[in-house]
Structure formats: C-alpha cells, structure tokens
Design a protein around this nucleic acid. Structure first.
Lengths: 363, 363
DNA sequence: CTGTTAGCGCATTCAT
DNA sequence: ATGAATGCGCTAACAG
C-alpha cells in the first residue's frame, strides 16, 4: 500500500470559542461536523464589528479601514470561516457559476474548449457547472431547466440549442447564453464558431483541386458532421459513397467504416472523415489491407487532434481554434455580468485546412 | 450560413398576469428579462393556495390532494415557473451539487470516470461542479475552498488530496469526500481506486517473466506515474533507463521520449510507458526508425485507451475500470446524503494487464 | 467609514 | 391535507 506523500502535517492553530480541535484525534474523528461551520456572524462577533462590515471587508476591502480589515482577517483565520456563496447569491443575484453543456465528455474534439472555458472562468472566480446531453434533444431541455434552477450567471452550449421551447425559455430568462461550435444568423443570444457547411465545401474544393475521382465520406451521424458532408457533396457537385458511423466515434469504428466504404467503392482513392480518430482508423485499416496512404488512398480528418501532426503519415485535417472558443465564451459572459452591453452576437472564428502527408498523393 | 434545424417554432401559450409575451418580437427583444422570473409565490397565487402547499406539490406530491396538485401544475405551466434551487438549498442544506476535481480535462485517462460520474449524478438530480487543479497543490487548495463555498453535497477528487491543510479542512467540513484513482489506508473520507505501486510491480513481473533484458521506462512526471515506475523498478530488482516527460502527454512526447531512451539504451528491447498515448508515440517513432514492434521492441502502455485494441499492432496495456470508479463515487455520495451510514472507506477496484500484440515478442 | 433595516426564495417547524 | 410563522446566511439600500 503506498504511503500518502504530501507536505509534513501542518496543524492549524485554530482557536475559537466553540473550537474543540484535537490534533492527535483529528484523523480518527468519524463524522466530525464538530459544531456547525462558522458564519459571517461568528466572524463579525470575533472581530468586534457588525456583520455587514465583515461582509464588506471580504468582498470590497477598499471601503474598510485598515484596522477593521486586519481584525476581520484575523477573525476569519481563527474561526476557519468559509463563505456560503449560496446565501450571497440569493441576495446579490450573482451565483458565480456558469453552466457548460456538452454532448458528451468523450467527444474529444470539444475538450480543449471546455478546458479553456473552465480555466478562464476559474480565473475570474466563477465555477463551471457541467452537463451532458448525450446528443438527445429531450435531455437538452431537462438539463437546461436543471441548470437554470441553479441560477447560473451564464450558459455555454456546445452546439446550438435544438429545442424551440428551450430557446424561448432561455431568451426570456435573461441569462447570457453562448452557443458554440456552429454558426447561425439567429442565436439565442450569442454564438461563437464557424459554418460546418463551409468546412465541408472547403474540403470538397480541396479534393476537387487534387483531381481525385473516386472519393468517399466516412462520417459520424451527428448534425454537424452531416452538415460538413452536405457541404462536401455540394462542392463535388454529385453524391458520394458514404459510411455513416453511430457514436461513439473511435478507432475501431473508423476501421469498420473503411471496410464498408471499400465494399461500396472498391476503387476508392480519397476519403473524407468527420474526425481525426476516424481518419486514423481508416489509415490503420488501409495499411492492414496493403493499401498505402497516401500513395493509394488519400485521407483527410477533422479537428486537428493532438496525435494527427505526429503520426506517420501525418494526418491532413481541419483546424478549429477550440481553446479560443472557450476563452471567448467565458469572457463574454464575465464581461456581460460586469455590465458590458451586448454589442455583438456573432463570432465566426473560421477554420483552416492543414495539409499534411496523408493527402500527399497525385491525382 | 446554415439554417438552424429543429422543431417547428412552437409558441408557448403563456398567459400570466405580468406576461407581455410578443411572438414576433421575441427574437429582437434585447434584454428581455421581461419582468422578473416567477417565484413559488406567484405559482401559489395563481393556484389559489399557500406558498408552502405549492412547495409540497412540487417536492413531495404524495402528501397533497389530487385537486391542488393539478391546480399547482397548471399554475407552474402558466407562470413558466422554474424553481430556484439556491434558495431551497439555503434552508434545506442540500445543494444537489457535487464537486468534481480533476488534474486537467485533457488527461484522457480520467474522462470515462468523469463522464460516468456526471451521468450517475444527473440521473439522481445532482449537478456536477467541475474544477481543474493543473496538478498544482496550491491550486488544489484554492479550488477546494471555492467548491466548499458553493456548499456541495459531496466532493470527488481524481487522485488523493495533497495539501494537509485541505485534508483537515475537508474532514472538519463534514462533506462526503471520495478520493479516486489511487489507494491509501487513510483517506480523507472514502477512496475508490487501486495501487499504482502494485500496477508497476505487476507490469515489472510481466516483463521479467518474458525474459527481456534491456528494458526502459517512458513516463509522465505526475505522482501516480512515478509510483508505477517505482513498482516497476522494484519488480525488476534494479534501476532502469528512464525518460521522463513533462505534461501534456501526447503522441509527439512519446516519440521524443523514445529517441531519448534509445540514446541512453541503444539495445533497448522492451519499454514500459505510463500511458497508451505515449506507447502509441513510441510505436510510431520505432517504426519510423525501422525498429519493428513487437519483433525488435516490446511496448506496454497504461489505461486501455479507446484506440489501443484496434491499432496494428494492438497495444498491451493495463485496464482500470474508470466508469465504475465514477459511478461508485456518485452512488456513495448520493447514498450518504440519503442517510446511509459510512460503512466502508476503502474500495480497491484493482486492475488487469491486457496482453496484446505489442508485447508479443520472444525473449 | 460603519451600522440598521429588510429582505432574496424557499423549506422546516409547528400549528390547524 | 393545508397554512402561518420563522429563518437559512448573506448583501442591497439606506442611514448615520
């Protein structure tokens, strides 16, 4: 059994009127709610000031004299006070929480966005409330209600809000809402992202420019992936053989989908995949069948995953600035709460095709 | 620009005394907090009952007559009422929120745990508060305080609580705490996981049993990975060439680390990696150098990533039941809040070596 | 700069 | 089965 490592035991010198801290026993005390937790009232009493002065000393120290500030700080230490934000939020109407709603955490494409969102929020004193819709519209509505019940200062969605009921409810709620990873002229409130249709068209034009004839699509079944496929088909000017993959979207599915696609189109010479993981799977399957990538088959992904640049062959993909989406979403909400007006609703961050070895193939 | 898809616009028939809903205008109303949101008071008035009866109708419908229940439900619809959980929590001491603390969302090993945690909590009406420590102990303490301020009904940590101050504070707080993905005889409250030292030893014995002589380790610098390395070295009975990789832990780092390791140990014939992504990187780099895996070099990972079984060669790894950790953590907290006693503190879920092609190599 | 008063919206007591 | 009173812990508004 590994020993815990950590800083040498530092015993807090807790001296309080209702304190009963016993160093040697602390580890063994089974449910030591001791007494109840200290409130601002206790801090105020210990500091010899009124409750509101203690409150100000903590939330707006500038307006308090240095002497009382010091007294309150000492009282906070001695009582082990931790503020109750729920109570504060009730009065102040600021919960310092932001709801983040993702289809599923396992969709790695969105992780950099969620991570950046969480980091930027934390830096501003906010906390992220996370929820997963599992790509189901009913779930989305329930989840949004559950979030609204917690009075978040903002809501960040991966994707657009699907349910019309939810859209109306959100608009009426007055809560800042940022939809992301897509684009629309009519967001609930604000939208940060890009057009998936345009991504598909751009990749399609790229394929056309290469002169490939026997192209195919290997795609997830979610709405955005389908939009990209539609754009791709538009650019090609004709329908193309397609393998649609149910979630989750992993390497095994990429392999299986390429098999399916090769049955439909044995002469396949280029394939457009809806994620880099699927592209990776296609490459693995191709290699297992003696199909060389890119010499015999060009492969393009989407999302610029953290492995794509360093594989052999490296994977051509579409890059989206996921962290920027998260940072911007957080900033927009924090700024709005600071009183900034809602000046701009649409933020199209665009995308960029990154050409790598997996499409380095002559026509 | 893609059009939003979705259900045809369904306009809620909102008829309320303070309603001013204007279908055609709703999209353009800039900050339409209309009036303030309906409270339970408004629902009660609309239903012709007292506030507390409305409260009971929603939280404990069995004790209310069918007639009043129907009236209240109608009133909820007509007012568009969404409960304010913050207010309820203040009185009831149940926030229906659980804090989840992870090193970083980008560490994919933990995602199945967080996903399962979130799902199980949501099913029980709880919401996940997510925070990231970035593997920094100071950050951990601040984050825990920020979480405690929000009065969570439980705290789930990936890893053990490092700071002794934080451990004491958590113990005194009375909040159920579940530490995960590690094992200790002295958790803050409960721990679900396994011994990383034992994992290292098991993999070490596995390597010894294969008779490999020139083994190396390619590892992340975090505490748990180092524990595994220590166990590995113990099983080997001697120190081994090691490349330590700073976070983040991606494919490129795996490639680079193998280069480094090969400089230290040119005759390397087996390498133990602290994640499957690093193992993947090692395999890619080996192949680029004409080193065959597994014929010339055996490679073992950790975590059983979603790509490991389907690569060619498939990657030998250590499987941990990540989803079970998350589900169990959620259940323990929910049950404790339901009044179940704290009967058991230690849950060692063990691990399992999954032997695949990447170690299919004679001595 | 500090204190007093008055709630935020709901759920727990206790009453009926 | 329903209601009245009370207060959770904190902060906005005013006062001094």
């Amino acid at each position: 059994m590994p020993q815990r490592h950590g800083t040498p035991a530092f015993l807090l010198a807790i001296v309080q009127e209702f304190g009963e801290y016993q160093p040697g026993l602390s580890v063994r005390m089974d449910r030591n709610q001791s007494k109840k937790a200290a409130t601002l009232h206790d801090v105020a009493k210990a500091a010899g000031v009124s409750v509101i002065t203690a409150s100000r000393a903590l939330s707006n120290p500038i307006v308090v004299s240095d002497k009382t500030l010091a007294q309150v700080k000492l009282a906070v230490e001695s009582t082990g006070y931790i503020p109750n934000f729920l109570a504060g939020s009730l009065k102040s109407k600021r919960s310092l929480m932001v709801a983040g709603i993702v289809p599923a955490l396992s969709v790695q494409q969105f992780l950099p966005t969620v991570q950046a969102l969480s980091n930027t929020l934390e830096a501003a004193g906010y906390t992220l409330l996370l929820g997963q819709t599992a790509y189901r519209a009913e779930r989305e509505e329930d989840l949004l209600n559950a979030m609204i019940s917690r009075q978040p200062d903002g809501i960040v969605m991966i994707g657009l809000v699907q349910s019309e009921r939810a859209r109306e409810r959100l608009k009426r709620s007055g809560i800042p809402v940022v939809e992301t990873w897509d684009m629309t002229h009519d967001p609930v409130d604000m939208v940060i992202g890009f057009s998936h249709l345009e991504v598909g068209r751009a990749v399609g034009r790229f394929f056309v420019s290469k002169g490939w004839r026997n192209v195919g699509v290997l795609t997830g079944e979610d709405y955005r992936a389908q939009q990209r496929r539609e754009g791709f088909v538009q650019a090609l000017g004709r329908d193309v053989p397609t393998a649609v993959i149910p979630a989750p979207n992993n390497l095994a599915m990429g392999r299986r989908a390429l098999v399916e696609l090769l049955e439909k189109a044995p002469a396949l010479d280029a394939v457009c995949c809806s994620s880099d993981m699927l592209a990776h799977g296609a490459i693995v399957e191709a290699r297992a069948r003696g199909i060389r990538v890119p010499e015999d088959l060009a492969v393009c992904g989407f999302g610029n995953a953290d492995f794509s640049a360093d594989m052999a062959p490296s994977i051509t993909t579409v890059n989206v600035d996921g962290p920027e989406i998260g940072n911007l979403a957080a900033s927009l909400i924090v700024d709005r709460r600071k009183g900034a007006p809602a000046t701009r609703k649409l933020f199209d961050l665009g995308f960029r095709i990154i050409e790598r070895e997996s499409t380095n193939r002559p026509a």
